[in-house]
Amino acid sequence: MSAKFEELPVPPDALERGGVEILRASIVEGAVSVGLRRSFDDPFTWGILLVDLARHASRIYALEAGMTEEEAFAQIQAGLEAELNRPTDLGSTKAIN
């Protein structure tokens, strides 16, 4: 028996107008598994993208977890700072093209 993978649907605007997937993250046996494309000429843009993702996650927590968007964002920011200051797992990365 194979394990079931639960993937998210493609965002409606991407289905309608097209696009390129640049990031896919999954939880596999309690660990994060990531696939991504470099995507931008300047790595600075990844910083903007990561903050945008944190804002989206904050809104989801506000909708589903009984906290405000600001409370959720503050907790996400605290997690980012903690992980930047004391990484729990540096992981490994391979380029596959």
Results as ranks from 00 to 15, higher is better:
I27P: 03
E16T: 15
T88N: 06
R17N: 15
I48V: 15
S58Q: 02
I60W: 11
E6S: 15
D42V: 03
A72H: 04
L84C: 15
Q77E: 09
L23F: 02
R17Y: 03
A25V: 14
D52N: 10
E16M: 14
E81A: 08
R59D: 06
E83T: 08
G47K: 09
E29S: 03
L49A: 15
G91C: 02
P87R: 12
P11T: 09
E83C: 08
G66R: 14
V10F: 03
R55A: 13
A54W: 04
I27V: 13
F5H: 14
P11L: 10
I60A: 14
Q75G: 06
G47E: 07
M1R: 13
K4Q: 06
G79D: 10
L36N: 06
L80F: 10
P43N: 07
G30D: 08
E69N: 03
N85Y: 00
V34D: 00
G19H: 11
R55N: 06
A31L: 07
A62C: 04
Y61S: 03
V20G: 02
L80D: 07
T45P: 01
Q77K: 11
G18H: 12
A72R: 00
I76H: 02
E21M: 09
E83K: 02
E64V: 09
D41S: 10
E64W: 10
I96K: 02
F73G: 06
M1F: 04
K4I: 14
L36P: 01
E16W: 08
G66E: 04
P87E: 05
E6Y: 08
I48G: 06
R17I: 10
L15Y: 01
D41G: 12
G19P: 14
L63F: 05
G79T: 13
V51A: 10
L49R: 03
Y61T: 01
I60S: 03
F5A: 11
G79C: 11
W46H: 06
I96M: 09
L63G: 14
L36S: 08
S26A: 14
S58H: 01
T45W: 02
V10N: 07
R86Y: 07
E70M: 08
V28A: 03
S39A: 15
S58I: 04
A3Q: 04
Q75D: 05
T68L: 14
E7T: 15
P12L: 01
I76R: 01
Q75P: 00
V28E: 06
I48M: 12
G79N: 10
A82L: 10
E71I: 01
R38V: 11
E29P: 00
R37P: 04
V51W: 09
P43E: 09
E69Q: 07
N85A: 15
T88W: 08
A65C: 14
T88A: 10
A65M: 09
G35K: 05
M67K: 02
T68E: 02
S26D: 13
I27W: 06
G79V: 13
D41C: 07
P9R: 00
G47R: 12
L90Q: 06
G91E: 05
A95V: 11
Y61K: 08
F44W: 11
E70P: 03
L90D: 07
